[in-house]
Design a protein around this nucleic acid. Structure first.
Lengths: 332, 332
DNA sequence: TAATGATAACGAAACGTTTCGCAAGGAACG
DNA sequence: CGTTCCTTGCGAAACGTTTCGTTATCATTA
């Protein structure tokens, strides 16, 4: 039903090769150019990208493997990935891993069968096995936000460990000694931030008793339960470091529900600034990630591999973060 | 480089047609089945969906045209759309309109060139012109969450007007008379909810002075400025109805900043329940949308057109909503 | 046993592009 | 005028599938 290049051929009398050349920006006699353009308009011709893809073996589509599209962080960063890709003329085929490693692995195969030109991954798994099929198929891969423990790929993320360490300064400078942490254990970012927390405490010569170390998942529930647990201790911490957005939300929910007040009863420092935290009382000290820069850099790295066919060794970029001041820390 | 059906042919000695038949679930002699399966494993063969798409003229991909992937609402509903599509063996090619009608129109053409089998749209524009190219190309379209003023397509949404009207009962039953509204004017949902608000006020025999009607955009800024405006009035309203998530956030930001307290100083009812509102104090009365049902219904409708080739007249489905109780309303 | 029918395999064409190698035409030059 | 070079156009093959119309095989039935 839709017009093909053959219809253009019929109307203009030119050969397929010439028309194709025009479509791809090649040089064509002015008179022929006019003819072709007229025919395209007449017939409402549009290139069939599928047919083109079959012969060029390029789809101008990038697969996005996202740990959970439901999470607000995803949307915040994907919008920048999307705009950057559009600038290059690429689209996003998004596969939602739903925080499930099995779905994630299946999605990789799906993206391969769709012949995406490259894949940007915010992974669920911490090991890289699931990416092997794509790697073997020669599809360039860039990790975003989260790295992997056992595999080398291009990666754009923040320096989680250092950022967490740095954030702790705010608490330490205000003389807190009994500081607890609630961090996700399964996710790369949670582990790194936990490590940064422990680094800071060690450097400050402070002990962190086991009951002050709450390791959970990347979820509101985890923050909620974790904070309740901490507040139920006989010897409560005076401050808590929380490793991400969801945990911070959950923790504040628990604080509110139990009738505690921050910073009077407990001081707080969190991760992942989001507009919402400017509304909550108190405004929590927060590490903010450079989302736009992360999205753009990831696309840049991928495009380099995809279009330049670059085969350089994988590079891991760790961007700096910024501390958003709040009023959730009490001077001790 | 990757194995093709021809390599399978070479290894098994069978014809292309037979192998294709097997791949598509046709009947094949047991011995041949074994051979083919062995070859597939040996050669790591995977169907090239591009080639398949060229001849079947189907891509098993659905285009998602989303007003702004940055908005938390998007992710919340897209996760359900995604899972429903996966069950049917379809993937999502997501195009972010960035709240910009021009980008939206360009994205439609992009999705057409990608030969998506259908399109699910949460539109930016309120008129349907931008969808015409897709309609003319015979691509089935389903609107989600927002309808259009001048075009008929399948549509799954909530009954915004009725829901808003219903929500107002909470305020009216508690004897509020001076009730203001902050609603987005550009978006379908905002207009409908505004209408529902006005319906309720008219039915209650209450007047709504112009300065109590704040019409803005679907944004935090709009809620923030709107609420500031209302709180600056000499004759303040005792209650405010807010038409969506972003506006509610902004409004609460203003309230907090100015040192007002809800519900003591001002009562609130909002739209779009999100986990965050369970943390804010007070917990705002909220209309909750059945996101999963919406996503699934939209996919069902689309699949009916795509796979059954149904040509029935477009249907608009309006789902019921639920009121989430809070403590943001003062008894007058 | 011959005729019928069911099942499975096959060869070839088709889908709509791009691209390769070559030919034709004209301009520039000695 | 003959050679060379450059530009533009052309025909045909290729990409990896599916599908159509036909043939081959074999069991069933009269």
């Amino acid at each position: 039903m839709p017009a093909t290049i053959r219809d253009i051929k019929k109307q203009t009398g030119l050969s397929l090769a010439t028309i194709s050349k025009y479509l791809n920006g090649g040089n064509v006699l002015p008179e022929n150019k006019v003819k072709i353009e007229a025919a395209i308009k007449d017939l409402h011709y549009e290139v069939n990208e599928i047919a083109r893809g079959l012969v060029t073996n390029k789809t101008r589509t990038v697969g996005i493997l996202v740990y959970s599209i439901e999470s607000p962080f995803s949307g915040l960063i994907l919008t920048h990935v999307g705009t950057a890709l559009r600038k290059h003329g690429y689209g996003m085929l998004i596969a939602d891993s739903c925080n499930d490693e099995e779905i994630e692995a299946a999605n990789v195969k799906y993206l391969i069968s769709k012949k995406v030109d490259g894949i940007i991954v915010i992974p669920v798994a911490s090991k890289g096995d699931f990416l092997l099929p794509a790697k073997n198929a020669g599809i360039p891969i860039v990790l975003l936000d989260r790295s992997l423990t056992d595999a080398q790929y291009d990666c754009v993320r923040i320096d989680n460990r250092k950022s967490a360490n740095y954030a702790m300064k705010e608490l330490l400078n205000k003389n807190h000694k009994k500081i607890a942490v609630i961090a996700s254990e399964k996710e790369y970012t949670g582990r790194e931030r936990y490590n940064g927390f422990m680094d800071a405490m060690r450097d400050a010569g402070l002990d962190v008793p086991k009951e002050y170390q709450v390791r959970g998942t990347h979820s509101i529930a985890s923050g909620y339960n974790g904070m309740k647990q901490l507040l139920a201790l006989k010897d409560k911490p005076t401050a808590v470091f929380m490793s991400n957005y969801e945990i911070t939300l959950g923790a504040m929910l628990a604080i509110n529900e139990l009738g505690y007040k921050s910073p009077d009863d407990i001081s707080l420092v969190g991760f992942d600034d989001q507009i919402i935290f400017h509304i909550l009382k108190p405004q929590v000290y927060m590490i903010e990630q450079p989302l736009q820069e992360m999205g753009e850099k990831a696309v840049d790295m991928l495009m380099k591999r995809v279009t330049d066919g670059s085969l350089d060794n994988p590079v891991e970029i760790a961007l700096a973060t910024r501390m958003v001041q709040g009023n959730s820390i009490k001077e001790m």
